[in-house]
Structure formats: structure tokens, C-alpha cells
């Protein structure tokens, strides 16, 4: 048992991260500068927030493909509430977060009340929410936000990019909830054996609805940060971010079948992906080449982990 503990997926991943950092650091002296590292933290916040909640979703045995579309819809509505309806920006942000949470809540209702498989439900809402964003915006973008709004996406607090504080805070809270609370235990229980969880008196449907709502909230929060970082809203924002988030979660050792996974793993997966993207681009590899490598790393890590896991238990 002790030997297999050291061979846990997170350990493999941590070693991979360290190797990647050393190799990438040797390629360029810009890589290990504080500025660069902080900037990378800024860039991974949006995917990170979504990936953290996605970890919960996947541990329950579900999946949420609609997060990118929720991001787009919340971003568009943020612009519409503020510019077209003339609401104060604070209120517009609050309403955008509400819309995102509501969108996630609707996913949860469709999945629990109507018994849709999560893949289908969120595939449907992926199209629906993105379509609403496109229909409402009619391909017009909103710009010209007040200066204070940019602090969130472009500014710093205590020498660290503002949104990085948020990411770290959310990660810690999520890790505590998943690791130590009854909500966390319920999440694992649902993913391991939903029927058993139901018979044990867990409020399975409520836990799921809460998790999908949280997923929508995280996507909306990412939308606000995204808008603040790039200074504009467009309806195609966040397209494909669901695949980035799922990649980080799965790379982090969360089983796609549910019941297994940690926030630490997800964060390591996230860091590995961002380090590869950044390090390779500093070393002169084009970003498209990096995408190839990330795909290969995803497949290989799971393959290696499978081989070791099977070797250790049988």
C-alpha cells in the first residue's frame, strides 16, 4: 500500500510538473522571472476557476460542456445590462453572475428532474446558451468600461495579479469543501455509486443541482474577469474553454467515470498545461505545436497511470 501511495497520480503529475519547469527554465532565462510567472497566473485564472468546479462535476460522474457558452452569455449580458439598459456596472456584474448561476441551475434541473445524461443536457445547453449570446448580441461588441473595472483583470493587488488571489482563494475553499465536508463526501459517494448514495439518504439531486449551479457561477465569474482582462465583450468568448478545463481536470487524475479526483490534482494539471504553453512559446515553439504536445501529454499521462495502477493492484 505504501508503495502504491507514492505512485499516486498526483505524485506522477507533480514530478512531471517539476521536470517540465526545469527543462523549460533551461530553454529561456525569461521563464523563471517573477513577471512572467505572475502573468501566467493571470492567464490561467479563467480556465482555472471553471476547472475547479468541473472537478466536482466530473467526480459525480457528470460533465458540463456548456461552461464556455455560459461564459459567453454572461459576458454579453454584462455588456447589455451596463450599456444598453444603463444599469450601474456593479449591478450589471451582479446580474451577470446571477444569469450564469441560473444557467447552471437549469442544467442541474434538466439533469436531475428530467434524467437527461449530463453529456446530452449540456450539449443541448451549449448550443442554446451560445445561440442566445449570439442572438442577443447580433455580433456587436461592447467596450469602454470605467477604469476601476480593469483592476480585476489587468491590475494588481499586493504585487500579485488581482484575479490570481481569487483563483487561489477559490481553490483553497474548494479543496476544503471536497476534502473535509459532508458535501465533499457526498460528491464522491454519488460518483462511486449513485444508487447506494440515494439509499443512504443523501440528497443526491440537491447536491447535483448545487454543483451544476456552482459550475455556472464559476463560468460567469470567469466571464467578468475575461471581460475585464480584454476590455471588451464578444459573443464568441470562451468558445472551447470547456475542453481546456476538462483536459486540466482529467490530467489531474480525476476519473471521467466519477468517484475519484482531487483539487490538488486539477491545479497541478492546470499548472502543467500553462507551463508547457508558456515555456514552449518562450523557447520559440509556435502555440499550435504546443497544443499538439498537450494532447499527447494528456493521453500519455493517463496511459502511464493506467499501467501503474493496474500493476499495483493486480
Amino acid at each position: 500500500m505504501t508503495a502504491s501511495r507514492f505512485l499516486r497520480h498526483e505524485t506522477i503529475l507533480a514530478v512531471l510538473v517539476v521536470i517540465a519547469l526545469i527543462v523549460l527554465g533551461a530553454q529561456s532565462d525569461k521563464f523563471f522571472t517573477l513577471d512572467n510567472l505572475l502573468n501566467q497566473g493571470r492567464l490561467m485564472t479563467e480556465v482555472g476557476l471553471i476547472a475547479i468546479v468541473m472537478t466536482f462535476v466530473i467526480i459525480t460522474g457528470g460533465i458540463d460542456l456548456s461552461v464556455g457558452s455560459i461564459l459567453g452569455l454572461s459576458a454579453i449580458l454584462l455588456g447589455v445590462f451596463w450599456k444598453n439598459l444603463g444599469l450601474p456596472l456593479e449591478l450589471a456584474i451582479f446580474l451577470a453572475l446571477c444569469v450564469g448561476t441560473l444557467a447552471g441551475f437549469v442544467n442541474g434541473i434538466i439533469i436531475t428532474r428530467f434524467r437527461f445524461p449530463p453529456l446530452i443536457a449540456t450539449l443541448g445547453t451549449l448550443a442554446l446558451y451560445r445561440g442566445m449570446a449570439e442572438g442577443i448580441s447580433q455580433a456587436r461588441s461592447v467596450r469602454g468600461y470605467p477604469d476601476w473595472f480593469y483592476i480585476l483583470g489587468q491590475g494588481q493587488s499586493f504585487g500579485i495579479p488581482t484575479q490570481l488571489w481569487l483563483l487561489v482563494f477559490v481553490a483553497i475553499v474548494a479543496a476544503i469543501i471536497l476534502g473535509t465536508t459532508t458535501w465533499g463526501r457526498a460528491t464522491y459517494a454519488i460518483g462511486s455509486n449513485e444508487t447506494a448514495a440515494r439509499f443512504s439518504g443523501l440528497r443526491v439531486d440537491w447536491v447535483k443541482i448545487a454543483i451544476y449551479s456552482a459550475s455556472g457561477f464559476a463560468a460567469a465569474l470567469a466571464a467578468v474577469i475575461f471581460v475585464s482582462r480584454v476590455s471588451t465583450t464578444r459573443s464568441d468568448m470562451g468558445t472551447g474553454i470547456e475542453l481546456d478545463a476538462i483536459t486540466a481536470v482529467v490530467l489531474g487524475g480525476t476519473s471521467i467515470f466519477g468517484g475519484k479526483g482531487t483539487i490538488v490534482g486539477t491545479m497541478l494539471g492546470l499548472i502543467l498545461i500553462q507551463a508547457l504553453k508558456n515555456g514552449l512559446s518562450l523557447a520559440g515553439v509556435k502555440s499550435d505545436g504546443t497544443i499538439v504536445l498537450i494532447g499527447a501529454v494528456l493521453i500519455l499521462t493517463i496511459l502511464v497511470s493506467n499501467v501503474i495502477y493496474r500493476g499495483g493492484t493486480r
Binding site: 483536459t247 504546443t290 497544443i291 504536445l293 494532447g295 494528456l298 493521453i299 493517463i302 496511459l303
Partner: peptide
């Protein structure tokens, strides 16, 4: 390799698109 199909094809998506 006993890897779930969504994981393999997610990886393949990156490889093909980037490639």
C-alpha cells in the same frame, strides 16, 4: 490502453488541430 474514449479523443482533438 483502457483509456476512456472521451479522454483519448480530447487528446487527439488537440493533436490534430494543433498539428
Amino acid at each position: 490502453g483502457r483509456i476512456p474514449s472521451i479522454v483519448v479523443t480530447l487528446g487527439m482533438l488537440s493533436i490534430l488541430r494543433g498539428g
